[in-house]
Design a protein around this nucleic acid. Structure first.
Lengths: 198, 198, 198, 198
DNA sequence: GATGAATGAGAGTTCATTCAT
DNA sequence: AATGAATGAACTCTCATTCAT
């Protein structure tokens, strides 16, 4: 009770958190293991005690981070609710998570071509697909209830995530350029009824 | 005429072409000046004779590449044509250019957070905006003729480019995953009338 | 008696055995304490509980290993026997021990210049001399009975050990290159009557 | 004439010379590239500009050094001379070269088991064999003229080199322990007529 | 204009050693 | 007595940049 017992995994977690921050700010190649260690409050050797290499640390940070997000999305949207509400909430939820975890998102969606080793790249793409599949799954609910057109939902989710990525980054880079609600509104409107006047 | 005089700028151009290839394949940080020099068929010192630094070379490669693309878009779409046709052609033209210049596109849309120096980053973002403004300008044609809703066209162009980026990359990484026409159809349908059944 | 008490020194011994194997296979500098600990079936900390440092462990492994060998040589050769037989047996016995303990031998005869700390080097050289003196002592038996020339027996033992080392290593590295008996024959002939025809 | 033109390969040579010194004093693993660079009077990067890796530098130093020695041996012994003289000179020549190039010799004969990468090890063994074959070739002259017994000359050369190595090292480590002439005399006597009195 | 040998700051990784438990 | 997570100094190798020619 009175003891300051350290929780198991505490150090590993602080490393992962520091890694997400640094990888996000600097990108994979400019991120220095020194900086991650310093931010995590451990010695550099400790990084290597817990992760075999910079690449593996990167991979772990991305994979575990995405998993957390996917779980949050499903928790917030699992409840039954009218389609219109569900649709808007799906978008709002994704926007909010993106804005919250911009660090992680930047990694997952932008580090695709930075010359990382192939097996690590595969890990990132797997994480990315984990997220896209989650979104596609949510859209599928709408289709099964007859509210959504019969389009390829995987491709649609890819497109949606692309919009999300670009628009949220706009706000993250310059919060005054566009408001959170404005983003949700635009995305909802575009996805609901498109761009043209019939 | 009969002389073998090398055109001025010929070396500069071959460097730029090599640079786009290498930067695209390796990303900014993994790209090596050695490799660019070799691919361009010049000595390494020549790179520095023409460009002050790796960053400046990167910046030039991106800026000049984007300019070419913007010019091509405008050339293909300037003619008068019915809205429906123009709308589809706008999307098709962007898809085709993206698939053609995947190298360059990957740089412009993915290298945002790779820890490049700030002034170079600004150059890239300027190039990116140049492209987005071009797309937004095309959409504006539709609005002025009453075919397109009164939404923020800059944000819409950002969203469109996000979809384009994600979907075209899907095809570039795995051509058998999705066809060119399928991409154009999906994008046109989504942007025209959205996702839901009313 | 009935208790499961572990014999004192049991762990120490398993560490020493593991150390000889690893040091021999990898050489002093490439040998890792981790690997020795694993091979010995103890935790890394236990190495340091029993030996002050890697160098001291190395020193102990070499010294104790050589001692065992010297004792074996003397045991096999102490009996009275005719000179010719004794001479051949001396060589055969050394060849066999070398081939058996190639691991240890490689260390003692090859690790001389690997940049080990000086005091440890001294330990190794002491062990080496212990072995050479043992061989010289055996030769001295032959001289006292008038069968061996009046040459410097220490130097001669050094020379003998050099031949032994090189020839046995040849066999250890490629057993098909030369047979055990061939080695004994060659060494006996060379040492008995030299190389030339008078 | 008056210009201080630097000979081509001068830097490469000074690196090789420095490498032999440092590798010999410290052994392969304790030798630091920093120290070699400093001793050679070049920057660290220059080592890597000339040699792909520490191992390759090591390999080059050994291979080129041995080649020089083999050439010297053959130059000094090629002349026609009576067998007795040739035999003694062969030994004297080897002793002198060994004592002169003790640095290199230490590497070639002692670095065998230090955990170097296999392909580099192969290079060293090739160099070693180059030397042994050279000695065996010299002995073969004596056999063809009927002065040397019909023994396996490769094995004999291996044995000879083993004696040479051990005895010369004794002198190199402690010059007062044994004189150069004493070494030549002992080796000549042992090899000529062996150890025993018939 | 063009070259390429030379540079050296910087980064990832290893591993003997320590010490709280 | 024994452990093993944590440490950090040390080391190899990379590569943008310079400059004498």
């Amino acid at each position: 009770m009175g003891s300051e017992t350290v929780l198991p995994g505490k150090k590993r977690d602080s490393i992962l958190q520091a890694a997400v921050k640094v990888f996000s700010k600097k990108g994979f190649h400019r991120a220095r293991m020194d900086e991650i260690a310093e931010k995590a409050g451990v010695a550099k050797g400790t990084l290597y005690y817990n992760f075999a290499s910079k690449s593996k640390l990167f991979s772990a940070a991305v994979t575990e981070g995405i998993e957390t997000i996917v779980i949050q999305i499903q928790a917030q949207l699992d409840a039954e609710m009218p389609f219109e509400e569900h649709f808007r909430k799906l978008i709002a939820c994704n926007v909010d998570l993106y804005l919250q975890h911009g660090d992680l998102a930047r990694i997952v969606f932008n580090e695709v071509s930075s010359g990382i080793e192939n097996d690590i790249l595969t890990d990132i793409q797997r994480a990315r697909n984990r997220y896209i599949d989650c979104v596609a799954g949510q859209l599928d609910n709408g289709r099964r209830t007859g509210h959504i057109k019969d389009v390829d939902l995987y491709l649609t989710a890819v497109a949606l995530v692309g919009m999300l990525d670009n628009l949220c980054n706009l706000r993250l880079q310059n919060p005054r350029a566009v408001g959170r609600d404005q983003l949700v509104d635009l995305l909802t409107e575009l996805l609901r009824s498109g761009l043209t006047i019939h």
